[in-house]
Structures are given as structure tokens and as C-alpha cells.
Amino acid sequence: MRAGHFKQSYLELVALTDSGAVKAWTAMLLVGCMALPWVASSYVLALATTILITAIGVVGLNLLTGVCGLISLGHAGFLAIGAYTAAVLAVDYAVPIIPGIICGGLLAAALSLLVGIPSLRLKGLYLAITTLAFTIIVTHSILNLDWLTRGSAGLSLPAADLLGISLAGKVSFYYFSLAACVLFVAAAMNVMRSRIGRAFVAIRDHDIAAEMMGINLVAYKLMAFALSAFFTGAAGALAAYQVRYINVDSFAVLVSIEALAMIIVGGLGSIAGAILGTIFMSLLPEFTRWLFDALGSGLTETFSTRALEVRGLIYGVVIMTVLRVQPDGLIGLWRDAKRLWSNWPFRY
């Protein structure tokens, strides 16, 4: 019997995957995603598009919080910056969608340095506090910079088109989001297997040891922070194009917490986990509503009038339960199942 799974060369170690099964599953998943518009209703398709866009931001947050071990409570701020950058560029300067998304990400990354430089020079929870402060500063600035952001009235975006193809329809925008999501996830996977990603993990696991190994802590922490902000800013820009109307209210602190809930539920530090968590948490409110509808309880009305609070309640309970019961998240469950399967009948 094989005693373990060994990698014998550096190339094997850094390969994205060496397993044929994983490649086959990935291909099947992609084909499934491509085929979705043919089978799904337009509501499901919109939900799927939201999940794809959210996944980009959550994978970005995961690079910072899960991989590098720094908590941010301010990703709603980066989301807002990305969304508003793309919207303002599209409305006032007629910039097309792809440069808009890139600019949104870049501006978010640039502003993240403004917060990151004071807080990342310190150890501990300072980043959580400053990013929280940052979100509040961002939302209030957006409210008060009327001439640029239209204040509380919000901004309506024109429909985007890409190389002459209109992205106004749900199906075409779904494909566009799918492509963006695949691109960003691939980028994140490549960051994780490279020198940079390994440095992030080293910093998370033991910062002093990492510094002894020659990793420049400040530089790499800032890099993680800016990279994460770029992902989230790009996700914000995409979301702005999806909804075609943005308003400060969509970027409350709760959004940051939702994103954190997603990576915790999925499993910190794993890209597959981040995506699983996004899917799980996005479907959870839908699922609970469906469940209560099916049970025919009197709570149906509560769900429609107090949707935001019900979501908050669910998120709070899920965060606390997962931290308490299954700190490794869904991906941890999957790993346990896999280990049990391959080692059976032995314990390990």
C-alpha cells in the first residue's frame, strides 16, 4: 500500500494540481457553468452571476485574511471604491467596462496602501480597526462628495458592451462574469503557489520565523493587502455593472462581515474553500426562505419585510457555530472525508 503522497521535484510541488481527477472535475465544473444559461431561469442566472462576482471579492479577502492571516473589516470600502470608480468613469467619461474594472481595482489597491502603511507596521488587530475606520470614512466621503458621486442619490450605469457585443442581457453578462471569475481565481491560485503566496503563508504561520527566513514583512503584508484590495475593487466594479445602479447603502460594514463569514465557513486559507463558502452563504438565505415557505409557517412575512435582519441573524449564527464546531470550515469537512475514505479501515 502506498504510504503517502510524495512530491519529488520542485516543479511537482508548485504545480497547480498533479491529480487527473481534480483536472477532470474542474473541466466538468467549467462545462456545467457554461451550460447553466440553457437550463436555469433568469432568477437563478442572476443569483449565479452574483455568486461569481462575490467569489472574486471573497477570494481576494481570503488572500489577505486566510492566507496572510490579517483580518480586514473594511472590504466593503474597497468594494465601494471599485464600484464608484467604474460607475463614475462609465457615466462621466464613457470608459468601457474592462478598463473600468481595472481602474476600480487599481484605485482600491492604491487607497489600501494609505490604510495599510500605518496599520501593517504594527502587529495584531490594528488592521481590523483601521480598515473598519476606512470603510466608514469611504462611505461618508462618498455621501459628501456630491459633485463626483451624486451623494445619496446614487449612480445609474449605462449598459456595457464588449468589442461590439452588448452585455445588457443576463446571459451575456453571466458569461462575462464567469470569464472574470475564472481569470481572477486562476490568478489567485498562481499567487498562492508562487514565492509570494508562500511568503504570505509563512507570515501567517510564524511572522518572526518568516522574517528570519528573509521575508520582508512590511513589504509582503502590504502586497497582500493591495492584492486583496485589487480583487475586491474589481468585484465591486463588476457588481456595479451587474446591478447598473449603485448607492452607498449597498456598502455597509455588514458586507465586510458577510465576506468574512464566507471565508470562515468555507475554510480559511483555501481558494476552493472561499468559493464553497461564497456559494453556501449566498444560497443559505434562499434556502431558509424556501424551507420556511415549504413549512408554511407564519414567518414568511418576516422574511420579506425584514430580509436584511434575517440574513444578519443567519450570518451571525453561522459564523459563531462554524468557529465553535468546525473551525476548518467546509473544506475541512471535505478533507476529513477524503482522509477517511483513503485510509479506511485505519484511523490514519
Binding site: T65, G69, I71, L73, G124, L125, A128, L254, I257, L260, A261, I264, T302, R306, L308, E309, V310, R311, G312, L313, Y315, G316, V317, V318, I319, M320, L323, R324, P327
Partner: peptide, 23 residues
């Protein structure tokens, strides 16, 4: 547990209480 988990516990609690109060 790592500090991040404990802090996230309080964040989860915050969301929970806020929603509970409104409900």
C-alpha cells in the same frame, strides 16, 4: 484558539445581536 477566531466570534455576535434587536 488564534486571536482571529476569537475576534471573529465577537464580530459574529455583533451581527447576531443587531439583527435580533431589530427583529
Amino acid at each position: 484558539e488564534p486571536t482571529i477566531s476569537i475576534v471573529m466570534m465577537t464580530v459574529g455576535l455583533a451581527v447576531f445581536i443587531r439583527s435580533l434587536v431589530v427583529l
